[in-house]
């Protein structure tokens, strides 16, 4: 396997250039999952039915679990959870703006469209790092991949339901029109590290290739369901990846870290195995 031939080795074996590229890839994976999960949890105890509440909670926890895998990989490079999540600035985060957009009560069609656009992109990205030259990414990607398949199915079956109803399909179409330019932020390149990520085999596809595949997949599915996709739209701004975020992220981050600050904490709890307690 070519990826193994070019294996970058252990965290401590990385050159400065390799390390920067590995970090850039890991931060995108981790921050996207973390913030997407956070927004999903908005729907806990607010979903239309008990069943849909349980399902979206599952997705939130899967994504939180993936975020933990990626943040753990970042911690192997010398960071701590405190640095990453609790004592950092909102502008330290590199997630795409797409995942930070807030929901309002009732915007279920928006939640489903967002889940669908995200889950397909995540599926493609995980496939692109499955053969990563960095072992930690390679191994963890395949752990996360199994769950992402269910997520795509979940979102798709909801889209089918929405498409079959006049009012609901209008809501979904509005969400597609609104979210599409933001979804493109997932594929935005940032700086010179971009070419390194691919040249060093950390990811085996370029962002352009991933975006093309994503666009083909979602246009196929959505047009089959009777929706139109504004494929000529420009990418939304700010993009997030370059640390420029919307106000919605700043206030979300403020809220997420409020108790840590109010309690005067200087460390984040890692829960021990309940057996050990």
């Amino acid at each position: 396997m070519s990826a193994t031939d070019a294996d970058l080795g252990r965290p401590e074996d990385l050159s400065e250039r390799e390390r920067k590229a590995v970090e850039a890839q890991l931060f995108r994976l981790a921050d996207d999952e973390y913030v997407q999960a956070e927004r999903y949890t908005f729907w806990q105890v607010r979903s239309p039915t008990l069943e849909s509440d349980l399902a979206i909670s599952n997705n939130a926890q899967d994504e939180l679990g993936h975020a933990r895998l990626w943040y753990d990989a970042i911690q192997q490079l010398g960071y701590s959870e405190e640095d990453l999540l609790w004592e950092s600035d909102p502008s330290d985060f590199q997630h795409a703006t797409f995942v930070e957009l807030p929901f309002e009560e009732g915007q279920w069609a928006n939640a489903i469209v967002r889940a669908y656009l995200y889950d397909v992109a995540e599926d493609i990205r995980l496939a692109a790092v499955e053969d990563s030259s960095y072992r930690v990414i390679r191994e963890r990607a395949s752990r996360a991949q199994g769950e992402e398949g269910y997520h795509v199915e979940h979102a798709r079956s909801w889209l089918e339901r929405l498409a079959a109803d006049a009012d609901a399909s209008e809501r979904a179409q509005e969400a597609i029109d609104e979210l599409y330019p933001y979804a493109l932020t997932l594929f935005e390149p940032v700086g010179a590290v971009e070419s390194d990520i691919v040249e060093l085999g950390i990811r085996t596809q370029t962002l352009d290739e991933m975006r093309t595949e994503w666009e083909n997949r979602i246009v196929d599915t959505l047009s089959e369901l009777g929706f139109s996709v504004p494929t000529d739209a420009d990418v939304a701004s700010p993009i997030g990846r370059d640390n420029e975020h919307t106000d919605a992220w700043h206030s979300l981050h403020e809220e997420m870290t409020s108790e840590y600050r109010d309690l005067g904490r200087d460390s984040a709890t890692v829960i021990m195995d309940p057996e050990d307690e």
Binding site: L64, L263, V270, I271
Partner: peptide, 29 residues
């Protein structure tokens, strides 16, 4: 309890609050 999913001061506590909230909905069901 749902506001504390967002405000929990560690990643694992957040996961636990999310899971607990989900369990309660499951119990209701």
């Amino acid at each position: 309890e749902r506001p504390f999913i967002r405000r929990a001061p560690s990643l694992e506590r957040k996961m636990a609050f999310s899971a607990k909230t989900q369990d309660e909905i499951g119990h209701g069901q």
